[in-house]
């Protein structure tokens, strides 16, 4: 049982962080704080991918010098091309490099919108903006 708890403790922490981020997005009215919540939510998803890729006692997937460079047989070479060294799984790292940049791009566009909304409405609180719109709706119809 202890092995199960130690093995899964990471996932539970990540889920808590993910839910904290989601809670901040949904509950706050302030637009900048919503974007911060979005950032926390996305960062916790990155942590899920990276916890997935860690191998016990493994090293970062970077060869010091290229072992078996140029050996003809692709795999199953006489000597294990990785020379018996355990490496963590490189694929989630690549995916997360993409996801981080996508996250920042969304954040930048979101912040640009917040600036323009502040200029147009004079406030970045969700309910002030709805109120301003409601007044216009009443005035025009």
């Amino acid at each position: 049982m202890v092995d199960f708890i130690v093995g899964h403790f990471n996932y539970w922490v990540i889920i808590t962080l993910m839910m904290t981020g989601l809670y901040v997005i949904i509950s706050t009215g302030n637009l900048v704080k919503k974007l911060v919540g979005l950032g926390v939510f996305q960062t916790s998803v990155f942590q899920l991918y990276i916890t997935l890729s860690k191998v016990a006692g493994g090293r970062p997937p970077i060869f010091d010098k290229l072992p078996g460079y140029g050996t003809e047989t692709k795999y199953g070479a006489a000597v294990d091309p990785l020379l018996g060294v355990i490496y963590s799984n490189p694929l989630p790292h690549v995916l997360i490099l993409t996801a981080i940049v996508v996250g920042v791009s969304t954040l930048a566009v979101g912040l640009a919108l917040v600036v323009r909304i502040r200029e147009a409405y004079g406030s970045i609180e969700g309910d002030d903006i709805d109120e301003a719109e409601y007044k216009i709706e009443i005035a025009s119809s």
Binding site: K34, Y49, L52, P92, I129
Partner: peptide
Amino acid sequence: LTASFNYLILGTIGATFFVIGVGLLYM
């Protein structure tokens, strides 16, 4: 502006849910 901001927030939550799904599938 507000329409685009709401679309951004909900769209990004949708995309992040999709990434979580793909991550679980990869797992």
